[in-house]
């Protein structure tokens, strides 16, 4: 009995220590949940086609991913982090202070954010100003002199040209990168058109940001969690409500939901490529240069990701709903990635 217990303890201890010190033979990727669907497709094909192990992709969110990425150099830290926004200066500093001094930035494509409703309802035509007025926490009063709590109950209140339907928008929570991008692109774009708030930008930029990006909390904007599928399902059940989510979900569910026109442009593949659709953003990933050559397969993975077969206009990522770069831009990215050009810290 004693011997068995002792042997068990020794075995377990050795297993733990061997596991802790084992060399990692696969690429470790973390980061944005928006880039996750694209990054995983590349990882899977890379694993099947090349002799390398399939990379492990974790969905941690852009901020969480960069935090892990910048926690140091070594096998315990990720090699690549996906991001739905560029790296911030504060994050660069964190990286540098932990010894991550050389980072390669790869732009992979665009993602459109759509405001959609059930396909059975009429398609809406909104301007970014309408979106701001409908969703902001505070809006200018009727005389345009002061800011008041958002009084608008229906879309018609916002703009007489819109239907008389209660404002009900389901969207992601504040922790989401999609929400950040939507607030920045759609709402801030809309509030800059209001002279009174625009003046504020010069005098008090912090307040300007707070006013523009503050979303109302009186029930008209419903935080529906990060699960975009759930939003799509709810839109089908309630034809008067709207949802905010990524273009790839619109593409997959084109028979159930339709994207509203924003500033007169419908969210289509072509419109986002041509940068006509106002609410779209770039997607990136960042590579730790110190890991290239240490963890096997990083360079080959980068080559697969930036190839025309994957990221190109007719590539398989476009089939998955990613909006590709133009061919010229892609070739530039491919070349700079191959040369492992680092960003300024």
């Amino acid at each position: 009995m004693k011997h068995i217990v002792a042997a068990g303890v020794v075995l377990l201890a050795s297993a733990v220590s061997s596991v802790a010190s084992a060399e990692r033979s696969y690429i470790s990727i973390v980061g944005s949940s928006t880039v996750y669907p694209f990054s995983t497709v590349v990882a899977e094909r890379f694993g099947k086609a090349s002799g390398f192990k399939t990379p492990k992709v974790e969905s941690t969110g852009t901020g969480g991913g960069l935090k892990l990425f910048c926690s140091g150099v070594g096998e315990a830290t990720p090699d690549i982090t996906n991001a739905s926004r560029p790296i911030k200066d504060s994050e660069k500093q964190l990286c540098a202070s932990n010894g991550v001094k050389e980072i390669v930035e790869v732009t992979i494509g665009y993602d459109g954010i759509v405001l959609a409703n059930a396909a059975s309802s009429p398609r809406m035509e909104l301007s970014v100003k309408d979106i701001f007025l409908a969703l902001a926490k505070v809006v200018p009063s009727a005389d345009g002199k002061s800011l008041i709590e958002n009084p608008y109950k229906t879309w018609k209140d916002v703009n007489p040209a819109l239907p008389n339907v209660a404002i009900k928008v389901m969207g992601p929570p504040p922790t989401s990168g999609t929400r950040d991008a939507f607030a920045e692109l759609a709402m801030e774009g809309g509030c800059s058109q209001i002279p009174m708030i625009k003046e504020m930008k010069a005098t008090n930029e912090e307040k300007f940001k707070a006013v523009c990006m503050g979303v109302r909390e009186d029930g008209a904007y419903i935080e529906a969690g990060e699960n975009d599928n759930l939003i799509v399902q709810k839109l089908g059940a309630d034809p008067e409500s709207f949802g905010i989510f990524g273009y790839s979900f619109l593409e997959q569910n084109a028979d159930k939901v339709q994207g509203s026109k924003i500033n007169g442009v419908e969210p289509t593949f072509d419109a986002i490529v041509a940068a006509e659709y106002p609410v779209s953003r770039s997607l990136y990933f960042y590579v730790k240069k110190a890991h290239v050559g240490v963890i096997p397969g990083i360079q080959e993975y980068l080559a697969e990701f930036t190839s025309a077969k994957a990221m190109g206009e007719e590539g398989y990522l476009a089939d998955k709903g990613m909006i590709p770069l133009t061919e010229a831009d892609r070739a530039k990215v491919e070349a700079s990635t191959k040369a492992l050009q680092t960003i300024g810290m």
Binding site: V19, Y36, T40, A43, E44, S59
Partner: peptide, 17 residues
């Protein structure tokens, strides 16, 4: 602890992702 991950290869041992 990072188990929300995309893992294609079937793990064989307790140290595989």
């Amino acid at each position: 602890v990072g188990m929300i991950a995309f893992v294609v290869d079937v793990p064989n041992f307790i140290s595989d992702p």
